[in-house]
Design a protein around this nucleic acid. Structure first.
Lengths: 219, 219
DNA sequence: GTCTATAAGGGGATAGAC
DNA sequence: GTCTATCCCCTTATAGAC
């Protein structure tokens, strides 16, 4: 799981972050996630984030020294959650259909419970990942390659159709994240003020049915 | 097809936009599309757009009175292209598999040829569509409903599986647009400096195979 | 249509008292 | 840790000459 990068307290010195710092940082991160999600990096103002954290702008800057630092913290938090879910394929002993099904529903669950984080991440990627490109490169590729290798084995064993594994994952990512990132469009299309858990259930049912059957894996 | 909204020259008065205005507006729109795609609305500066149009900032403002006006022009251009492609289902006389296949490949072609426009639109939707919500509401729903109705007829006629038509379209939109919007992530995953037309062919092959088969339509 | 000059305001960040 | 005050750059937009 993700660990705060600042946790460098070594050995005897119990230099733990105070309870108040812990609480404030948490509040700030949540507020920042929301504001960045709705305004983008440049559209967000540290003033608005501070307001939503019940802190003054200057006091907020005491905890996160700059807008850039705060943004990086938000980005990395969601990215690690996302990377963890990529490893669902690491589950041993399950059959391919169950593993992929869990994978799809796991990604959908992130979209449902962390829509703002997902939006911040999506915004960053769309703009060419200027703040996180290197970090992404180092962490995404290895995790994806492991999954791709597994799918290739399934194909070699005749367990599923001979499809391109990379595009399978691209499509799973896109079609699960769309329920977070493009929720405003989906709400308009469905004429609903917000997406509820039934909508996500329907999405999960459709996706698992269609994708598993589509690649020859339906049980 | 999309028409410039300013085309209000009526009857005898040949009040046509001068050739130079036409050319400059075109250059500006292209530059704006690119800059908005990479920086978002707030991150983009009219100065940068002007530079890429080989015009001074002030001169650019002579053609588009404000950043907001320019942004709206870019948004509407791509949105209408997008809406047109939604009507591919209006093709008569084709069987369902061919119609959906054309639809998917048409959307992919927009991603390939207009990636910047797609990104601007995606950015706007992610941020909650603040600049285009009303316009989207009035135009998206009717077009989508027509397509959904058609799919429901196919289901009633037993031509395909009984899936939720709305989610079918959400997934097609997401998985075709991802090759434009999230291209930087896909490039990292594939370890390529850019996506070429072979990548789009593979994406199209994967998508048509998987989605058509997945909903019980493969011929 | 294009240029120079400039108004006007927003917003990130720092200094230093308490 | 929190506050008041403030600096200063960046950016949009307008005024007006040519």
């Amino acid at each position: 799981m993700y660990q705060q990068a600042q946790e460098e307290n070594s050995a005897e010195k119990p230099r733990r972050r105070s309870r108040i710092r812990e609480a404030h940082e948490q509040k700030i991160l949540e507020a920042a996630e929301q504001v960045f999600a709705h305004k983008g990096f440049n559209g967000a103002t540290i003033e608005e984030i501070a307001e939503q954290s019940d802190l003054s702008k200057q006091n907020m800057l005491y905890y996160f020294a700059s807008k850039e630092v705060l943004y990086q913290a938000v980005l990395r938090k969601i990215f690690h959650l996302w990377l963890d879910s990529l490893n669902l394929l690491g589950q041993q002993g399950e059959d391919p259909a169950t593993m992929l099904s869990n994978y799809i529903r796991g990604k959908l669950e992130i979209s449902r419970t962390m829509p703002n984080g997902s939006k911040v991440f999506a915004n960053e990627i769309i703009n060419g990942a200027p703040h996180i490109k290197q970090y992404l490169k180092e962490n995404l590729q290895p995790a994806l390659e492991a999954d791709v290798k597994l799918v290739k084995e399934w194909i070699a064993q005749g367990k599923m159709d001979d499809i391109d594994p990379y595009h399978l994952f691209f499509v799973i990512w896109a079609s699960t994240q769309t329920y977070a990132d493009f929720s405003s469009q989906i709400q308009l299309a469905l004429d609903k003020p917000s997406l509820d858990s039934d909508d996500f259930t329907r999405a999960g049912d459709f996706l698992t049915h269609t994708l598993l059957k589509g690649i020859g894996l339906s049980s």
